[in-house]
Simulated scan of single mutants.
Amino acid sequence: MKGMIAAEQTVQEWGNGLGVRITAPIAKAAHVARGTPIVVEVVEGGFFVRVSGKPKLSLAQRLKQFDPQMHGGEVMASSPVGKEIF
């Protein structure tokens, strides 16, 4: 793997389980963020962590990505219905 980044970590108690903190440089290099789904697999000599999909976005994150130009300036590009019609 080209330009591999590594960091020594310590397993810590986290509630009733154990946890490992992913440092910002490693998260950035791996293109992961809060909410990114992962899979943890037990392998010979330890475990392997890999991304299993895209992060689920919060409503605020989805609204931030909204492009009015792409959607004609409206959330719903259909014609008016109900009390909107005068």
Rank of each mutant, 00 (worst) to 15 (best):
A77H: 07
M76I: 13
F66N: 03
I5V: 13
G17I: 02
M70A: 15
K64D: 09
A7T: 13
G72C: 04
V75G: 11
E44H: 07
V39P: 01
S78I: 08
M1S: 14
S78D: 15
E44G: 10
E44F: 01
S79I: 07
A33C: 04
A29H: 14
A29D: 12
L57D: 04
S79V: 08
T36S: 07
A33N: 02
V42N: 05
E41P: 02
E13A: 13
P68S: 12
E74D: 10
K54D: 14
V39H: 05
G73Q: 04
G17D: 05
R21N: 11
A6L: 07
G17A: 12
R50M: 08
F47I: 04
K56R: 13
A27L: 03
E8M: 09
I38Q: 02
E74G: 03
A29V: 01
G53E: 07
H71A: 05
G46L: 08
V51Q: 15
R34E: 10
E44W: 01
T23A: 14
G19W: 11
V20W: 03
R50K: 15
Q69V: 09
F66R: 07
S79P: 00
A24N: 09
K64T: 11
P55Y: 01
V39W: 01
V40T: 09
M4V: 15
Q65T: 12
I85L: 14
A30M: 12
P55K: 02
S52R: 02
G35S: 03
H71N: 09
I26N: 00
I22N: 00
M76E: 14
G73H: 05
L63D: 07
E44D: 15
L57A: 07
G72N: 06
Q65L: 15
S52L: 06
I22E: 01
Q69Y: 04
